Simulated scan of single mutants.
Amino acid sequence: MSQPKLSVVITVYNEEENIKPLLEQVYDALVEIDYEVILIEDGSTDKTVEEVKKHANTRTKLIIFNRNRGQTTALAAGIDQATGEYIATMDGDLQNDPTDLPMMLNKAIDEEWDVVAGRRANRKDGFVLRKIPSKIANWVIRNTTKVYLKDYGCTLRVYKADIAQNMGLYGELHRFIPVLAKEQGARMTEVDVKHHPRIHGESKYGLSRTFKVMSDLILMLFFQKYFQRPIHLFGGLGIISFLIGMGISFYLLILKLFGEDIWGRPLMILGFIMILGGIQLITTGIIAEIIVRTYFESQDKKTYKIKSIYVGEKVAISSQKTEV
């Protein structure tokens, strides 16, 4: 089989009533594109699998998990199985509109974008429980990571295959896919896409994910700034802590020399804690550096990614000349 132009990766979990209209809409939207559809069934407890098998065409592949693994793992599995030049991701709840995919694909091809992200222009979700928390989260992520997208919660995106397949999706990092893509030097843009209210089933997300998002944000900031040089973070904090502790201890030593009783003072305890904490942080930084080096060297990974190599025509010609 020839390589398809577009692989559409869709995660589904307890979406039995949505499968038939979802597949029909995807097939109709991509009729003029060489495509494949990859559905990842994330441990559903309803008849999602049976519905997919009933309505799938020959260009559709179904991946079935043995239990619920989460959206990030499901997306990673689908992306790994994709063979297209471009990879699109979308939800299986009918809130994303497949008719936006041709427009996004054409924009990626014509304007040479690595990532084209969807932005829900007229979002059909609850204002208090969904829109307000989402706006706050988007503002925080945008201004801390310096990746300026307005809608991090929209799953509808189109990627160049090499970008999507090298992002390293783990845990619950699907919310930060644009940040992971940016770390690879991806050029990305954002376009308005259609959004529909959920008709069947229930949303799998709520306010309970707020703390997970904040925890993942801390991890993303670490990846952005210190993944290849953790000693700069832990070592820097450790040195500051150690110096503060030593300063406190020196101050108390002077007081002791002048005959004051310093035993049991909270300041003395603080000094000891700062010194020991500084030593621990520095040690952590050294261990983290060793782990990072092991990570890269054991797998022969590079700490950089080359976009392209150009050899000038004159250089290439002159290098073929031989002396007589």
Score class of each variant (00 low, 15 high):
residue 130 R to M: 15
residue 69 R to Q: 15
residue 151 D to T: 14
residue 285 G to Y: 03
residue 15 E to N: 10
residue 35 Y to H: 07
residue 196 H to Q: 15
residue 226 Y to C: 04
residue 114 D to Q: 04
residue 87 I to Y: 12
residue 120 R to C: 12
residue 21 P to V: 03
residue 123 R to V: 14
residue 155 T to Q: 13
residue 59 R to F: 00
residue 94 L to W: 01
residue 235 G to E: 00
residue 264 G to S: 03
residue 291 I to P: 09
residue 248 I to P: 01
residue 162 D to S: 09
residue 5 K to C: 05
residue 159 Y to L: 08
residue 131 K to L: 13
residue 251 Y to D: 04
residue 98 P to R: 06
residue 273 I to T: 01
residue 77 A to H: 12
residue 197 P to H: 13
residue 251 Y to C: 06
residue 112 E to M: 09
residue 146 K to W: 14
residue 160 K to I: 03
residue 234 F to G: 01
residue 315 V to Y: 15
residue 172 E to D: 10
residue 105 L to G: 04
residue 217 L to T: 10
residue 239 I to F: 00
residue 3 Q to V: 08
residue 309 I to W: 05
residue 243 L to G: 02
residue 54 K to G: 03
residue 175 R to G: 13
residue 132 I to C: 11
residue 247 G to W: 01
residue 238 G to W: 02
residue 56 A to K: 12
residue 15 E to G: 03
residue 82 A to S: 09
residue 181 A to L: 00
residue 90 M to C: 03
residue 15 E to S: 01
residue 293 R to Y: 12
residue 156 L to N: 04
residue 205 Y to H: 11
residue 216 D to Q: 11
residue 120 R to F: 11
residue 137 A to Q: 11
residue 96 N to S: 07
residue 317 I to M: 15
residue 216 D to E: 15
residue 142 R to V: 01
residue 8 V to L: 02
residue 193 V to Q: 05
residue 134 S to R: 12
residue 211 F to R: 15
residue 223 F to M: 15
residue 263 W to K: 07
residue 151 D to R: 03
residue 133 P to C: 04
residue 131 K to N: 14
residue 14 N to E: 05
residue 323 E to T: 08
residue 134 S to P: 11
residue 319 S to V: 14
residue 289 E to F: 00
residue 13 Y to K: 09
residue 299 Q to W: 14
residue 121 A to N: 11
residue 140 V to K: 05
residue 45 T to M: 10
residue 20 K to T: 02
residue 26 V to P: 10
residue 160 K to A: 01
residue 268 M to A: 14
residue 255 L to V: 04
residue 55 H to L: 04
residue 288 A to I: 00
residue 76 A to R: 12
residue 147 V to D: 12
residue 85 E to I: 08
residue 212 K to H: 14
residue 280 Q to C: 02
residue 23 L to A: 00
residue 46 D to S: 07
residue 158 V to Q: 07
residue 110 D to S: 07
residue 51 E to Y: 06
residue 320 Q to E: 15
residue 37 V to C: 04
residue 24 E to V: 10
residue 52 V to N: 07
residue 55 H to Q: 06
residue 251 Y to P: 01
residue 13 Y to C: 04
residue 229 R to L: 13
residue 119 R to N: 15
residue 49 V to M: 12
residue 308 S to C: 08
residue 295 Y to Q: 10
residue 176 F to R: 00
residue 279 I to A: 08
residue 270 L to A: 06
residue 169 L to M: 14
residue 153 G to R: 09
residue 37 V to L: 08
residue 31 V to S: 13
residue 37 V to N: 10
residue 65 F to C: 13
residue 152 Y to G: 10
residue 111 E to S: 11
residue 118 G to V: 07
residue 76 A to C: 11
residue 78 G to E: 05
residue 247 G to Y: 01
residue 11 T to S: 09
residue 146 K to A: 15
residue 182 K to I: 01
residue 323 E to M: 10
residue 174 H to F: 06
residue 47 K to N: 14
residue 249 S to I: 08
residue 170 Y to Q: 13
residue 290 I to Q: 13
residue 256 K to Q: 14
residue 214 M to H: 09
residue 198 R to D: 07
